[in-house]
Computed example of a mutant assay.
Amino acid sequence: MFLLQQLDQTLKKIKCQIANSLTVINLSLGVFAILYVLQGELRTSLLLITLAAVFDRLDGSAARKFNIVSEFGKQLDSLTDIISFGVAPALLLYHAVLFQFGIAGSLFTVLFIACGAIRLARFNVMESNHFFVGLPITAAGCILTLLYLLVPFLPAYLFMFITLVLSLLMISTIRVRKM
């Protein structure tokens, strides 16, 4: 009986760490994406941010499946999201096109990151079961990342406009239904 209880407790501890481990992988991919942007390897960065999105989805699924949602996990996920879907995509687009606008391009890059941080802070203190308030940073960051593929085809100023729109949507009060 004692061994079964010990085994059950050990399994619970392992389950608790699965989602957090997936979140740390997401974080690592986001950091590597930033490092690759700094080295000028923008396509590799795009791939890493995309993989980070996959692991972001997996960590949430694991937490719900194993019923291991925790305040710690929520905070860790938010801190990870600002790196993987705030800083990394903003720097990717900055290095791809926004740098052409000098200070204005830098400010739009910072604005995207700041609005993402505000969005995550609001998410962490608000209780909403069936919807998000404002565009989730994961969606905004993925859109910004995929825009990199359109750099050769669209005028540069359009990326400034889209960055501004995504930034404002993150801090808006629009309701986005949870999937």
Rank of each mutant, 00 (worst) to 15 (best):
L4K: 09
Q5P: 00
Q6K: 14
Q9I: 08
L11N: 13
K12I: 14
I14Y: 13
K15H: 13
K15F: 14
C16P: 01
Q17M: 12
I18A: 04
A19L: 01
N20H: 03
N20K: 06
S21A: 13
S21G: 15
G30P: 07
Y36A: 00
L38W: 12
L38P: 08
Q39T: 11
G40K: 07
G40R: 09
E41Q: 13
E41H: 12
S45K: 02
L46W: 00
L46C: 06
L46H: 02
L46A: 08
L47F: 13
L48D: 02
I49N: 00
L51T: 09
L51D: 05
A53Q: 05
D59L: 00
S61F: 15
A63M: 02
R64I: 09
R64T: 12
R64P: 12
I68L: 07
V69K: 08
S70P: 08
E71P: 02
F72D: 00
G73S: 01
Q75K: 06
Q75W: 02
L76M: 11
L76T: 03
L76W: 00
L79N: 12
D81A: 09
I83M: 11
I83R: 00
F85C: 07
G86A: 10
V87G: 03
A88T: 10
L91M: 15
L91F: 14
L91P: 01
L93N: 03
L93P: 01
Y94Q: 05
H95Q: 12
A96H: 01
V97L: 00
L98K: 00
L98A: 08
G102H: 11
G102Y: 08
I103P: 02
I103V: 15
G105I: 04
G105M: 05
G105D: 06
S106R: 13
F108N: 03
T109R: 08
F112H: 06
I113C: 08
C115H: 03
R119T: 11
L120F: 10
A121Y: 11
A121E: 11
N124M: 11
N124D: 12
N124K: 09
E127V: 14
N129V: 11
H130R: 10
F131D: 14
F131Q: 12
F132N: 05
F132A: 06
V133L: 09
L135S: 04
P136M: 03
C142Q: 09
L144E: 01
L146E: 09
L150S: 15
L150E: 09
L150F: 15
V151I: 14
V151N: 12
P152W: 00
F153L: 13
L154T: 03
P155A: 03
P155Q: 06
P155K: 02
A156K: 06
Y157E: 14
Y157G: 07
L158E: 07
L158G: 06
F159M: 07
M160I: 15
M160A: 12
L166F: 08
L166A: 08
L166C: 10
L166T: 05
S167L: 06
S167E: 06
M170L: 12
I171K: 05
S172F: 11
I174A: 14
R175I: 00
R175D: 03
R175P: 11
V176D: 02
K178L: 07
M179C: 12
M179Q: 06
